[in-house]
C-alpha cells in the first residue's frame, strides 16, 4: 500500500519503488534483520521524500530515476507535438522554410558522405569478393548493404549531428534570450511555430535525404568498381537493382521517417527545455546529438527485428 504523501501519482509511485529497491539491496547484504527491515526502509523513504535536495545514496538508482523522468518528459513533449500537429492554424510558411533548411541545406554534406560511403565500401570489399571469384556480385552486395542499412543509418547520424544539434542550440538560445516568450506575447503559439514545424520538417526530409544519399553512394560504388575494371553504368545499375527486393526498400524507407521524427523531437525537446544560460545551450546541443544518435540505433534495431518478423 502506498504511503500518504502529498505528491503526484507518478512521483509517489517512483519514491515508493526506490524505497523498496533500497530495502531489497540492504537485505541482500545481510545488514538488516527481518525485524527492523521494514522500519529502516520506511526511514530511508521518509528521508527521500522529506528533501529533494538530499544527494542519492545509490548513484544507480538516482540515474534510473532521472532516466525515467526524462523518458516521461520526452513522451509528454511528443504527445503535445501530435496534439498541436493536428490543431489549426497550420504554419505552412515556417514548415517550408524548415524543410528548406533541413533538406536542401544538408544535400551537400549527405551527398559527399554517401559518395565516400559507396566508394570505400566497394574498394574494401573488392579483394575479398575477388578471392571468391564473386566480383560480379559487388554491385548487388553494395546495393543491398546501402539501401537496407548503411545509407539510412549513416544519413540519420549525419542529420542528428547537423540538424539535431542545430535545433537544440537554436531553440536553447531562443529560450535563454527570452525570444520564445517574445513570440508568445506576440500572440503566437511558440510550440506550434517552432517545434511542430521543425519536427515535421525532419520527419519528411530525412527519408528524401536517405534516398538521395543512397543514389550518390551507388554512383560512388560504380566509380569504385571502375577503378580496377570496366563496367558500364547500365550494367552496374541493372545488377544493383536486380539484387534489391521490395522487402529491402520499403522497410528501410519507412524507418527513415522514424529516424527523422526522433532527430527533430529530441533536438527540439532539448532546446525548448534548456536552462542555465549559455551553458545550458551547449548542453542542449550536445545531448540532442548524443540522445538522437542513440535513438537512431535503437529504432534501427527494432525495425530490423520487425522486418525479420514480417518477411
Amino acid at each position: 500500500m502506498l504511503p500518504s504523501i502529498k505528491r503526484s501519482g507518478l512521483q509517489q509511485a517512483l519514491d515508493y519503488l526506490i524505497a523498496m529497491c533500497r530495502s531489497a539491496m540492504i537485505a541482500q547484504t545481510g545488514a538488516l534483520t527481518m525485524e527492523n527491515k521494514d522500519t529502516q526502509a520506511a526511514e530511508v523513504k521518509k528521508k527521500e521524500v522529506a528533501s529533494d535536495e538530499t544527494p542519492p545514496q545509490y548513484p544507480l538508482i538516482g540515474a534510473l530515476k532521472a532516466f525515467v523522468m526524462e523518458v516521461g518528459a520526452i513522451s509528454k513533449f511528443a504527445f503535445q507535438y501530435f496534439r498541436e500537429l493536428v490543431k489549426p492554424p497550420y504554419e505552412f510558411r515556417e514548415l517550408v522554410k524548415q524543410m528548406h533548411l533541413t533538406g536542401y541545406k544538408s544535400l551537400a554534406l549527405v551527398g559527399i558522405t554517401g559518395f565516400i560511403m559507396g566508394l570505400v565500401l566497394t574498394i574494401q570489399s573488392r579483394p575479398v569478393m575477388a578471392e571468391f571469384g564473386a566480383e560480379a556480385w559487388i554491385p548487388g552486395m553494395i546495393a543491398v548493404s546501402i539501401v537496407r542499412e548503411i545509407g539510412p543509418v549513416i544519413t540519420a547520424l549525419i542529420c542528428a549531428g547537423k540538424v539535431g544539434s542545430g535545433m537544440g542550440a537554436e531553440l536553447g538560445s531562443m529560450k535563454v534570450t527570452e525570444q520564445i516568450d517574445a513570440m508568445e506575447v506576440s500572440g503566437t503559439n511558440p510550440f506550434k511555430y517552432l517545434v511542430v514545424t521543425r519536427v515535421l520538417a525532419t520527419t519528411l526530409m530525412v527519408p528524401i535525404l536517405v534516398v538521395f544519399s543512397d543514389t550518390i553512394a551507388l554512383f560512388g560504388s560504380y566509380i569504385g568498381v571502375n577503378l580496377e575494371g570496366k563496367v558500364s553504368l547500365t550494367l552496374f545499375f541493372t545488377k544493383a537493382f536486380e539484387s534489391l527486393d521490395f522487402s529491402d526498400v520499403l522497410p528501410a524507407f519507412i524507418k527513415c521517417f522514424f529516424f527523422g521524427f526522433i532527430i527533430g523531437l529530441i533536438g527540439c525537446y532539448k532546446g525548448y527545455n534548456s536552462n542555465k544560460g549559455t551553458e545550458g545551450v551547449g548542453q542542449a546541443s550536445n545531448s540532442a546529438v548524443v540522445i538522437a544518435s542513440l535513438m537512431v540505433f535503437i529504432i534501427d534495431m527494432i525495425a530490423v527485428q520487425l522486418t525479420t518478423l514480417f518477411t
Binding site: S173, M174, T177, E178, Q179, D181, A182, M183, V185
Partner: peptide, 10 residues
Amino acid sequence: FLFQSGALYD
C-alpha cells in the same frame, strides 16, 4: 511587452 534583453529574433 519590451523584454530586458530586447528579445529580437536573431
